[in-house]
Design a protein around this nucleic acid. Sequence first.
DNA 1: CGCGTTTACGCCTCACGTAAACATC
DNA 2: GATGTTTACGTGAGGCGTAAACGCG
Lengths: 299, 299
Amino acid sequence: MTLKQLEAFYWAATCANFALAAQRLHLSTSSLSKRIAELEQSLDVLLFDRTLHKASLTESGYALLPQAVQLLQVAEKTRQVVSKNQAVSGQCSLGVGELSALTWLPQLATYLRSALPHIKLEPQVDIGSALHQQLLEGGLDCAVVAGRSSHPSIASHTIGQAKFEWVAAPHLSPAIQEVTEALLKEHPLVTLPRGAGTSRILDDWLLANDMDLAQRFTCNSWGVIAGLLIEGFGIGILPEGWARSFKRRKQLRVLSSAVQLNPLSYTFQHRRHDDRRLVTTTLAAVRKNVDFSVSPRLL
Amino acid sequence: MTLKQLEAFYWAATCANFALAAQRLHLSTSSLSKRIAELEQSLDVLLFDRTLHKASLTESGYALLPQAVQLLQVAEKTRQVVSKNQAVSGQCSLGVGELSALTWLPQLATYLRSALPHIKLEPQVDIGSALHQQLLEGGLDCAVVAGRSSHPSIASHTIGQAKFEWVAAPHLSPAIQEVTEALLKEHPLVTLPRGAGTSRILDDWLLANDMDLAQRFTCNSWGVIAGLLIEGFGIGILPEGWARSFKRRKQLRVLSSAVQLNPLSYTFQHRRHDDRRLVTTTLAAVRKNVDFSVSPRLL
DNA sequence: CGCGTTTACGCCTCACGTAAACATC
DNA sequence: GATGTTTACGTGAGGCGTAAACGCG
């Protein structure tokens, strides 16, 4: 039984399949398979059931998993205790939503390049639910997602809030300065699809105002949404930084509303027992650089 | 960093020297040295100071030791959780005093041979203080010693008591049936050297009876002591089983005493963090077979 | 047939022991 | 010189990737 074998077992047990786990370990699938086989041989126990299409944990495998986690944690702690102030290094795949990608992510990348050059950041942009799934399957080391995860094997750390404003094109019902039910009936609501964090904000607001769902036009790209809003296609909400920028250029106007939009809390999420310094260091770096209020870089 | 390296480090750090640690791991000294060197390289830290005659732990080495212990313990636990009911195997060097060796040790050996054939018992007979030292230096896995160890890195488990009787040859002051100060002044006290557990019993008794030390003749062999007592060389104490045997053969008579001799408690001792099943299983086997009251096999 | 896992094979590194060298007392 | 640790070196097992085979949907 070796630490390498246990590490291979951990990833194989918690990733969607061996290929993904192997990728995570910078290993070929066949080598990973052999490591698992050798671990099984050394413990004289079958850890995976291969009779099905996918390898799944046996009872013994389930029994081993928490032990393996503990062992790897202690091993990591051991490395930290002894080799203090060693440069953190490795690839870190970070999942982010489009909003994060367009506001503070470039800042984070710049910071990491100068402060922690041995960390190779690999950003992956997708909607929150996809990122969450990727975290579970082992495709990501960590992700910044709206809200906390309710999944037991994902740990969430609050890192910041994004604020939103109601906006409309200047020529869209120019007399009206406030978001009303009538306005929402007249013009479609342009927003991200359900499942994105922003939807929660909108649903909260609609509920608080006792309004029915207006016509809803969804697209998974903030850029497209902003474009549609500027075109006067409908009304919608934008992150405060964006709203500010477009307002300054007179491309959009900010609408008031009787009830404020709740801010949206974002959390840094990672696999609960993944205590690698790579992850904790990345969390610290994200905390240093997160800022949802900045204007998007592309404008 | 591998488990093998940490195991090598643990033994190298806690044994008297690398050679002994290597022997313990069934490894050549050079291989052990290389393992340590590789561990140092992988952690990028010097663990031993080689400028002195003997390699001694550096500050980092001292920091690593408890972590290594914890890691090895968790590893051992992990093996146990998964591979339950696996046969325990390995060489187990057990230190015992002569009294244990001559009473219950053969019984233990027989038991182990039939019940746990994969454990190779290697008994080593010496006086308690030597066994204790060997435990500390790593020369022994475990030992049965009189009294508990006060050393922080040695764990003690009480396993039984030995009772002793005052004896004398039938022709030695035949009128006297009780141990008195006068008797002890007339005849030398034949006993084990100071440092053996039996000395404590005698000192307790002398103190309780407010007696001064009589003339004392010491020898490190119970066989020699019994021989001298039978010869009428002096008076002394013998384990109850021995006293019973010699009394039955009329070679010795048992003397009464106003104050009883305290029984002597024996403990099973091992290195505190050595949780190998080999050790715990041996402890259980010793508990099953320990019996200081049996007559010695050689009589 | 596609997807996921294992086997076959050639390559090379790594871990071992023997023996000699080195360092300290 | 005795004791204790490291270096040199030849050997064999073990871990790796590529590529082919297997086995279940």
